[in-house]
Design a protein around this nucleic acid. Structure first.
Lengths: 191, 191
DNA sequence: TAGCTTTCTTACCATAGGGTAAATTTTACT
DNA sequence: AGTAAAATTTACCCTATGGTAAGAAAGCTA
């Protein structure tokens, strides 16, 4: 929990009361590899701040194929924000790729922090702005780069994530099949 | 300008002083079709709220191909948020697809509103949250849908935009070539 | 309305990446 | 260590989409 508090303090001044409020609505939990926190089709109430390990969010399409939206490591938030924000059932599944530690919040309760501690809006806004920028970049990269180029970029952007992920996780993030990724890796090794 | 003020008032209580501040830092401008507001490679200082017409933001890759990030119509914001947020030169170009009216802000000045009128954070946060959700959806659609499916979805999501856009604008948004889109349209017409 | 320019369509062949399935390697379990 | 399970690689052929270029259509301008 201290990780999160410190991270927030880097961005805004956090009153002791606000800090207490955060403690009161959160729960630090340790999760084994494979644990599913949110399952496609179910109600989403929780959002998570990762302090250790690696998680991913993905959807399963009508043919049963998985598509990874996000990998989350230390200091990232993860949940199904589509569901939370549109008040629908989960379109995503969130699972632990490794043994992980996360701080769990009820999304509605966490949202309530803005009423009691408006200064928190600023922290949230900055987070969202950064997130929007990274999503814009991801979309542009997907539009203009070839699969090998996207893979190279992925390795640069997430050097630590690769240890924890299966190849088919990465493939499903890049928008290619596991077999294509394998071919790309072979070509890369030749050079 | 009233459109924007009303839109904000739907989301938060706007003090008269805050409203005045918004007026003091904004400028309503009318733009001809083809006008370029932000050009790839140049410094980005401005952000725009669209009140009439249609604009798009796109990047040009190393082969000279265009890739559309966003179409913006009435009530949307448009700029190069990658550049604004990372303090780099524009990676995007923003141009008018039709004669348009926009409200222009200096991005830094607009950001300053949060210091004087913290209640504005809430409006911004909600905007960003909605935007993040739409970007998440776009990424998932790009990963799991075929080109014809993406085109159908596009027509549903932006029925009004199609009148203003060239086919190659839409193709560059969907991540396909103009020729592929043409084939898809022919197939669709057959049914 | 004629002529120019831009956009869209069509046709051809090329290629990146997909689908299936089998072979191999790695990992996990007892 | 030995076995089973999971993940990865390889091979084969297939399909969707791309690239180039030419032709048709639509939109502007004089």
């Amino acid at each position: 929990m201290d990780e999160l508090i410190n991270k927030i303090k880097n961005s805004i001044h956090l009153r002791p009361e606000a800090e207490e409020f955060l403690y009161s609505i959160s729960k630090e939990i340790t999760l084994p590899q494979g644990e599913v926190l949110i399952r496609q089709g179910q109600v989403v109430k929780r959002t998570f701040f990762v302090t250790e390990g690696c998680l991913r969010s993905y959807c399963i399409d009508k043919n049963g194929k998985e598509h990874t939206l996000l990998f989350a490591i230390k200091d990232w938030w993860i949940s199904d924000y589509i569901a939370i924000h549109t008040d629908e059932l989960a379109t995503l599944t969130v699972e632990c790729l490794t043994k992980s530690k996360v701080i769990e919040f009820n999304a509605k309760e966490l949202d309530g922090i803005h009423i009691h501690f408006p200064e928190f809006e600023s922290y949230q806004r900055h987070n969202l702005e950064r997130h929007v920028v990274s999503l814009h970049k991801r979309i542009l990269n997907q539009l203009q780069l070839s699969a090998p180029e996207r893979y190279d970029l992925f390795l640069k952007q997430y050097p630590k994530i690769e240890q924890h992920t299966r190849n088919y996780h990465i493939a499903s993030y890049l928008g290619i099949t596991q077999q294509s990724l394998s071919r790309i890796r072979v070509e890369k090794a030749k050079k």
